[in-house]
Design a protein around this nucleic acid. Structure first.
Lengths: 113, 113
DNA sequence: ATTATTTATCGTATATTTGCGATATAAAAT
DNA sequence: ATTTTATATCGCAAATATACGATAAATAAT
């Protein structure tokens, strides 16, 4: 890669890409589905629900937590995770930007595609 | 990684993860923004608009095209790309699934998060 | 016909991600 | 006090992703 060009992009583009990266693995999609179904809590049952080792699941949970898509607290011996809907909805709403940009597009030609 | 566990997940989870991965780099977010602004066409100006070498941009375009988020056609000497809104909207709509799952969640406790 | 322009692809170096066994940590159960 | 249980972290191997120079391919301009 020689050098990482990530920082040459706009902050909002980096932020959106980071959120997308957080859900760019089927395991992390599956985790979000499990958490959505149970609304909250669910501790280590996530491990049982996935075809991965405990260490690997823990790592995926860490990545989701790092970008703020889930919250996690320690409850005695176990850990408890849930979706951070505020962040999740903020993430999804960012896709509206693309449609807005296209509304006042400079060229509506559709000439080639 | 030893072995790739991707295929142990559900097809729809893999598909959504693949789309998310396609937009998990700021360069590809930036490309989609440029294409949205111009609605269609725009060939190699994308390269000018990005802080990356031509070969790198071409590779990013290829990835977006591979998942169907953009369409591209050759127009004589140049290439013309545009957003595939059908795929884009289908992608975004998939995030609604998570909210739906949470509606009939088995536990609304919010006890720990 | 030759040259210039545009874009895709190849090859390769480096960076990052993924996966997991081993181990650490910390609370609960005995 | 010791053992069991639950989860996070470390360290490493293998897989993927990123970046780009060099080059190919194909059209347009001269």
């Amino acid at each position: 890669m020689a050098i990482n060009r990530k920082m040459d992009f706009a902050a909002d583009e980096i932020a959106l890409a980071d959120l997308a990266k957080a859900i760019s693995h089927p395991a992390r999609i599956a985790i979000l589905k499990i958490l959505a179904q149970q609304e909250s809590c669910i501790c280590g049952q996530i491990v049982e629900g996935l075809p991965l080792a405990q260490a690997t699941v823990s790592q995926h949970l860490k990545e989701l937590k790092a970008v703020g898509l889930i919250k996690g607290t320690i409850e005695g011996k176990t850990s408890c995770y849930c979706i951070n809907w505020e962040m999740f909805n903020q993430f999804v709403s960012q896709f509206g930007v693309f449609a807005e940009l296209s509304k006042n597009a400079s060229c509506q030609s559709q000439s080639c595609c």
